[in-house]
Nucleic acid binder design. Structure first.
Length: 937
RNA sequence: GCUCAAGUGGUGGAAUUGGUAGACACGCUGGACUUAAAAUCCAGUGGGCAGAAAUGCCCGUAUGGGUUCAAGUCCCAUCUUGAGUACCA
């Protein structure tokens, strides 16, 4: 009987679906295990072979944990709001919901074919009202909360109001806007409702603020930073300008320290932790206030990580946008400063960052007073100082900072040396082991001590204090898009109001056009029914707006990361209609035990999700403050793009080997036109597109050879390989094994189908092993010692490998086991049955089939994992490698219970040893029992 | 520039605490079966030198040093590639 994978795979996929084999229960005596994949965005291109890599790995782990007796939650869903569906809608008028639905159906079909053990009863889609109802609810919770520094957590806004009522601002230590005012309890009570609202807005965890966006007038839309290249839009190459808009922001900066600290409690890859650590960018130092000469009321505050170098300050630089620039600039410098400010304003932030080499700036004519020496210090402006970091001003220490040095050098400003025995005439000294000199009370101290003392003296003199700064900025939460969660927000007299949670969800309104409106409003501005009626608590037509009881609704939508910042909690209780998940479900599943996904989400999704989780934890909605205990990044599967070379300006295509010095244009061709030896099917190429119809080819040895390059798999590069055809040709089990066999999970690797026959023939060998064993039945007979040894060393290795996520090596272990058992002509049930359980997480279909043929009536997924028994591996002897000066010369079989002395005696007496030594006496003999013998001399 | 990861046969990769480098697979070569092909099975396969052969010797994990009885593995320097980030004071 042949291995008919098509039939077998269809049979078991149907069986699992009908029997709900992988449905997870929220009540169980078993220990729980939650294995999660980062859910996909359902793009129109469908799944390619890169997607399943991580899904296969987590599926293996989930199945393994089931064999170990865990109650496993292994769900899947779709991150289904997003840009491509909206752009397709703009082009075709097709509603994004329709496109999304179609794409999801394609994904589902493809996923089903690979045999994943997902619990589909818990499927979620972020774009459904049942789901985004809760996303909206979380937003309102953020709005109704503030960050209390005293308790170091988020609290309901009511606790802040209570503090204001009893103590005014005196007892409040909060993470809030910079420009909050102080008041007493009495003043607070005297404020009008609107004034109170305005004050509270500065404390809420989500708040409106004027933020700059990249506005492209020609496209009528807002662009993300990476959609802009050299100041022009990526699509169409139109000019992009910076425009201020009122947008929602999330006070993620409040959580900077906790996000940093939390990294120590979770098992995530170090590179990913490093990326988050850098992104949060904690730096410690001091904040120092410099008085401005002739402006006794003005202070310039700077942040420095090197307060120890304060006596090396010879000038000060402000960001051109700094608010004090216009106040301090002297009349004779005014023109130059204004010119410079205008020139920098024209350059985009990107341009400014990209151009690091050009040094530019202008002198303001004003002077600051050094807090310790009282010396007058020139105040400059320069675009190397960023308004958005720290205070937008730096104290420049040219001897200790290369950028300050470059600036000073360029503008001929004094460079004062405060480092003992170091020459700073050519470059700054950034070495932190240098000794400070020429610095009054800091002279003679090391950096560490000087820093401490400098901060102490600053605080004593009232010039500043120690400070910790974070690079992490609050996150903009508004998008000028259609296909996203609408905000549950309406505006009364310009102030945002939350819609009460009982009225959620606020459904995404229908619009005629998915583009922004002509006056630059977001697409929801096109909606005709988009106003909130406070009396009926319903969304009503816009023309009913009277600003008495009917008010305009928010026109922005939420960003892509809103829905993905809490979805892992939803799977725990995905069909709950009252709350995002019940307390019991959250208590039971707690957190994700294994999270698999790409490292590209390091500073996006993975940071925002940790932030929301901590927030929900603070308000006691979730039981843990880190949502994923362990995280693994799977590497990307790269495509091998193929190129033809067109002679410039012609329809002639030159085979790769014949190009030489001719001017050719490389053009991507569909990889399906190319065979394994890089030969192009020229007819298929000509038929591909109208423009290639008349192509002529310059062949080498009668063939057109294409160029190859490994790139990211992408539709536009025509290098996408889709799993469907592989499933058809070799079966899902072959695909699963092959993807695991490609190499370490974390590593990026090019896709190359050449090796798939190896995995496939392994499965055929496996099938034959069972077919030969009493026609699949196996025999009830005590296995031989060798057979048991093969089985148990396989159990040991596979178990270790799975736990280390080393799936590639366990596939080779299976191959070795099957090769060895085939050689032994093993037909014992006692060996063949446990072997199937070992392989079943990797190749679930064939193992279910063989399991059934062995006489089992329940799914193999219910079988328990074989238990490793050391006793089968105990050896009585060892084949020792015998080395001379570290080089292995021959092997010698010796009993393991020999003592070192006995080993040495035997080895030294051996004829090969004598031959190797050629009469020399060894200086030393190293014997590591059970490992190696090394003779030196 | 900075941070991180990585560099091993023709190819993907293995070698988990320093202890037999190249497991397993692909590819290739030869053979068996076959009219033939496919499929399957068997043997060989890092490079070099010597030998009819068994076998022996030398070289070999990006490069150059070092530590060690012993280094792909540890240390220092350099080069290359990939990823992230970027005037962060």
């Amino acid at each position: 009987m042949e291995y008919n994978f098509n039939e077998i795979e269809a049979k078991w996929q149907q069986y699992w679906a009908e029997n709900q084999t992988f449905k997870a229960e929220n009540n169980s005596d078993k220990p729980k295990f939650y294995a999660l994949d980062m859910f996909p965005y359902p793009s129109g291109a469908g799944l390619h072979v890169g997607h399943p890599l991580g899904y296969i790995a987590s599926d293996i782990f989930a199945r393994y944990k089931r064999h170990q007796g865990y109650n496993v939650l292994h769900p899947q869903g779709y991150d289904s709001f997003g840009l491509p569906a909206e752009q397709y809608a703009i082009q075709t008028g097709q509603h994004p919901a329709v496109t999304t639905e179609t794409n999801i159906n394609t994904y589902r079909k493809q996923l089903d074919k690979i045999g994943f053990s997902f619990d589909w009863s818990r499927e979620i889609r972020t774009s459904t009202p049942e789901y985004y109802k809760h996303t909206q609810w979380i937003f309102t919770q953020l709005f109704n909360s503030w960050y209390n520094r005293t308790t170091d957590k988020a609290e309901k806004i009511e606790t802040l109001i209570a503090l204001f009522e009893t103590h005014g601002t005196t007892e409040v230590s909060a993470v809030c806007d910079e420009n909050v005012i102080e008041f007493t309890a009495a003043t607070w009570k005297a404020y009008s409702e609107k004034e109170k609202e305005q004050i509270l807005a500065k404390y809420r965890l989500t708040y409106l603020s004027e933020t700059e966006v990249n506005w492209c007038p020609a496209l009528g839309t807002v662009l993300a930073n990476d959609e802009i290249i050299n100041g022009l839009s990526e699509r169409g190459g139109h000019p992009v300008v910076r425009k201020k808009m009122m947008q929602w922001s999330m006070r993620i900066a409040a959580y900077a320290q906790r996000l940093l600290d939390g990294l120590n409690t979770i098992d995530w890859p170090q590179p990913l932790k490093d990326a988050q650590t850098n992104w949060i960018g904690r730096s410690q130092g001091a904040s120092v206030r410099f008085k401005v000469d002739n402006h006794p009321q003005l202070d310039i505050e700077v942040f420095t990580t090197r307060p120890d170098t304060i006596f090396g300050v010879t000038f000060m630089t402000l960001a051109p946008e700094h608010e004090l620039v216009s106040q301090i600039v002297t009349d004779d410098c005014k023109a130059a400063v204004q010119n410079y400010v205008e020139a920098t304003a024209k350059r985009s932030e990107r341009d400014r960052m990209a151009d690091v080499k050009t040094i530019s700036g202008a002198f303001t004519g004003a002077y600051a007073i050094h807090p310790f020496t009282g010396e007058k210090i020139q105040i400059w402006i320069g675009d190397y100082v960023l308004a958005s970091y720290g205070t937008g001003a730096v104290m420049a220490v040219p001897c200790g900072d290369q950028r300050d040095w470059d600036f000073a050098h360029h503008f001929n400003i004094e460079i004062k040396n405060i480092f003992e025995g170091i020459d700073v005439s050519e470059k700054a000294c950034e070495d932190k082991t240098a000794k400070i000199t020429n610095s009054e009370f800091l002279s003679g101290l090391t950096v560490k001590k000087a820093t401490k003392l400098a901060i102490y003296e600053l605080e004593k003199g009232g010039f500043g204090q120690g400070k910790t700064n974070y690079r992490l900025r609050d996150a903009v939460f508004s998008r000028q898009r259609y296909w996203g969660e609408p905000f549950p927000v309406y505006y009364v007299d310009g102030m945002p109001k939350m819609i009460d949670s009982q009225h959620l969800p606020i459904l995404l309104p229908e619009v005629e056009k998915y583009l922004p409106t002509e006056d630059g409003q977001p697409p929801l501005g096109n909606a005709e029914v988009w106003a909130w009626d406070c009396e009926t608590a319903k969304v009503v037509p816009c023309d009913k707006i009277d600003h008495q009881t009917v008010f305009p609704l928010e026109l922005n939508t939420m960003p892509g990361w809103a829905g993905s910042s809490w979805y892992f909690n939803r799977y725990m209780d995905a069909n709950n209609t009252n709350e995002f998940a019940s307390k019991e479900a959250l208590e039971y599943w707690k957190e994700v035990d294994l999270y698999l996904g790409g490292s590209e989400h390091a500073t996006g999704h993975l940071l925002y999700a940790r932030f929301w989780q901590k927030f929900l934890f603070d308000l006691e909605y979730v039981p843990v403050d880190e949502f994923a205990k362990k995280l693994i990044n799977q590497g990307m599967i790269l495509g091998t793009s193929a190129f033809v070379y067109r002679l410039e300006g012609t329809q002639t295509y030159i085979s790769k080997g014949l190009i030489n010095d001719q001017k050719v244009q490389p053009i991507h061709v569909d990889v399906s036109f190319v065979n394994a030896s890089n030969e192009l099917d020229t007819e298929a190429f000509k038929a591909w597109r109208e423009e290639y119809k008349n192509a002529e080819f310059v062949l080498e040895e009668g063939k057109y050879i294409v160029g190859r390059e490994v790139e990211k798999m992408s539709k536009s590069k025509f290098n996408v390989v889709n799993p469907d055809s592989i499933c058809e040709e070799y079966g899902a089990d072959s695909l699963r094994l092959f993807e695991m066999f490609l190499g370490p999970l974390e590593q990026s690797k090019p896709w190359n189908t050449a090796g798939i026959s190896g995995s496939h023939s392994f499965l055929k060998k496996l099938w034959r092993l069972y077919a030969n064993a009493n026609n699949f039945q196996g025999i009830e007979e005590v296995p031989s010692k060798e057979e048991l040894k093969v089985l148990h060393k396989t159990i040991k290795k596979v178990q270790e490998d799975i736990e280390n996520f080393s799936f590639n090596t366990s596939v080779s272990t299976f191959m070795i086991a099957v090769n060895e058992l085939s050689a032994l002509k093993c037909n014992k049930k006692e060996i063949l049955a446990p072997l199937l359980v070992l392989i079943s997480p990797y190749a679930p279909h064939i193992t279910e089939e063989l399991w059934e043929k062995l006489g089992n009536t329940t799914s193999i997924s219910t079988a328990s994992f074989p238990v490793f028994d050391e006793s089968h591996l105990v050896e009585s002897s060892k084949e020792y490698p015998v080395s001379f000066n570290g080089k292995m010369r021959f092997k010698l079989e010796l009993p393991l219970d020999l003592s070192k002395e006995e080993i040495e005696k035997t080895v030294m007496a051996h004829e090969k040893t004598v031959a190797q030594l050629q009469g020399r006496t060894p200086k030393k003999v190293i014997i590591v029992p059970g490992k190696i013998i090394n003779i030196v001399g």
